[in-house]
Design a protein around this nucleic acid. Structure first.
Length: 492
RNA sequence: CGGGAUGUAGCGUAGCCCGGUUAUCGCGCCUGGUUUGGGACCAGGAGGUCGCAAGUUCGAAUCUUGCCAUCCCGACCA
């Protein structure tokens, strides 16, 4: 049929590309590397965003908005951060176009309108925000500052994929300022846990919490914490990061405060973010060859009702019964859609809502109504059953939670089954090539070894898990002593 | 950014090598009818800057050059 997907086995990468477009989440645009997030995809993002926003507010944060443009002189103030992003910055150099005198109807950049100082389009907002915080902070009484912003950022990527890596993407970035190092570290870890809770409980994607090695650390950070998720093809995906920035930005932007004993000190900072990339993680963690599989808590449509009728008379009967179910479901807060359009037949609708990942489908015809039942299909297990109309609202409401749990459990089982220990180089390489997933191995702690392993296997250290147990061993590459295992994987 | 491939109606495509009436077919779309429990059927119909721009030619979807976008590989990717 027209909407058939490439199967995962045939070409995982193509399956993903097909799925994003055919399920109606997003499209390519006329701009290289930039996507159009379509209404269905945006509804999904809104559900994710709204829940995260609630969680940020529960932990004491407030929202604000800072400019898209960052003057180059501000951008370069924190050197490591600037250097890290320099290669992928879009830069505004002019502020005006004019008619092309040699080519009627065309426009050219007006050379008269060159900016005195170029404006960098934010790849992240530390610079503009810390330049602002300088004006907000004088005393310990002004701290902490716990601000988040929802924004778009631009990183000029050479190779892009819908949701996973686009030149422009949507995200949130939290930027906090604290009086003490301890408080800033605590904030960094707290937000990592918020991310992990969100991704596991709402997206039903299990993650591993950890800290990045120096090689993988955010430019300008003292420590970068992350949550790492595992995709069905065995590749890892960084789903969120939280950075302890030390006093690096405070020093770069000269942000000092007076403490209780009137001593001046630099402010301690954190930043943390998740982006529309999470949607890529969601797709690759759960979906199958029939389409998306969305966890109920964030699915734009949780239940779809499809009537099966013969003629207008029966349709009227089914409509009436369906509407009574819908009002009961809505009263329980269930997002339900009734698709009684006459444009397509039931079978077509079944396939379409499977493609779109709707967790529960209810089909009802005259035969069902006579028997006081509906046909109910679960997207996660593909099970169909006949369910009594009595208490159907309660049943569905509970089923949505069961599906949510089942999706998480299934993904968790997969994740656990794909963390493999390797104690020799041969084992290490073999696991990466034949099984993939995370490989838990000893590493001598040097960036050089990490780099060599990356060159030889394309695997990087995803993180040093926070719940790591100390264990003596020897580095899988160099044989040098090591005190703990770290997680390697090939990654998105 | 380097190497390779692709671009023809909303989608998938034939035609291109070897230039020549009105650009092929399927799905989808519109109208009417019959249908409706896993991607319906019949009849009629609409829909095209052949990715964009130059060039060669009497004539370009077809040949040449440049550009744009997408896919794959590589480099890069806090």
């Amino acid at each position: 049929m027209a909407k058939e997907l490439t199967s995962r086995a045939a070409d995982y990468s193509q399956w993903y590309n097909d799925l994003v477009i055919k399920s109606g989440l997003a499209d390519h645009s006329a701009v290289r590397g930039c996507m159009v997030i379509k209404p269905y995809g945006f509804a999904l993002w809104e559900n994710m965003r709204d829940q995260l926003d609630r969680m940020f507010k529960e932990t004491g944060h407030v929202n604000a908005y800072f400019p898209l443009f960052v003057p180059k002189s501000l951008f370069e103030a924190e050197e490591k951060n600037a250097e890290g992003f320099a290669k992928e910055c879009a830069v505004v150099t002019h502020y005006r176009l004019k008619n092309d005198p040699d080519n009627k109807g065309k426009l050219i950049v007006d050379p008269e309108a060159k900016l005195e100082e170029e404006l960098v389009i934010r790849p992240t907002s530390e610079a503009i925000i810390w330049n602002t915080y300088k004006n907000w902070i004088q005393s310990y009484r002004d701290l902490p500052i716990l601000v988040n912003q929802w924004a778009n950022v631009v990183r000029w990527e050479m190779r892009t994929r819908l949701f996973l890596r686009t030149a422009e993407f949507l995200w949130q970035e939290g930027h906090t300022a604290h009086a003490t190092k301890e408080e800033a570290v605590e904030e960094t870890i707290k937000m990592l846990h918020v991310y992990a809770d969100f991704v596991e409980q709402y997206m039903a994607v299990p993650v591993i919490k950890g800290v990045k090695t120096a090689n993988e650390r955010f430019a300008g950070a003292e420590d970068t914490y992350c949550i790492e998720a595992l995709m069905q093809d065995g590749k890892a995906l960084q789903a969120g990061t939280s950075h302890f920035l030390g006093q690096n930005f405070a020093k770069a932007f000269d942000v000092k405060f007076s403490d209780k004993s009137n001593q001046l000190d630099y402010v301690w900072a954190t930043s943390w973010g998740v982006s529309t990339r999470l949607i890529g993680a969601l797709i690759m963690a759960h979906s199958d060859d029939e389409g998306l599989m969305l966890p109920p808590r964030i699915a734009p449509i949780q239940v779809v009702i499809v009537p099966v009728y013969k003629g207008e008379d029966s349709k009227a009967v089914i409509d009436e019964k369906a509407n009574s179910i819908i009002s009961k479901l809505k009263a329980l807060g269930v997002r339900v859609k009734y698709d009684n359009s006459d444009n397509s037949r039931p079978g077509w609708k079944f396939a379409e809502y499977e493609l779109k990942g709707v967790p529960v489908r209810i089909a009802m015809g005259l035969r069902d109504i006579e028997n006081n039942v509906v046909e109910l299909a679960r997207r996660d297990t593909k099970e169909k059953s006949s369910v009594s109309l009595d208490g159907i609202d309660i049943y569905v409401h509970q089923l949505l939670e069961i599906i949510q749990q089942n999706m998480f459990n299934k993904a968790k089982t997969f994740q656990q089954a794909n963390i493999t220990k390797a104690d020799t180089w041969d084992e290490f390489v073999q696991i990466l090539d034949e099984k993939a997933g995370f490989v838990s191995a000893h590493w001598d702690g040097t960036p050089e070894t990490e780099e060599k392993i990356k060159e030889q296997t394309k695997a990087t250290i995803r993180c040093i898990p926070l719940d790591n147990q100390p264990e003596m061993g020897v580095c899988v590459l160099t044989g040098k002593p090591s005190t703990q295992r770290v997680l390697f994987a090939r990654a998105y």
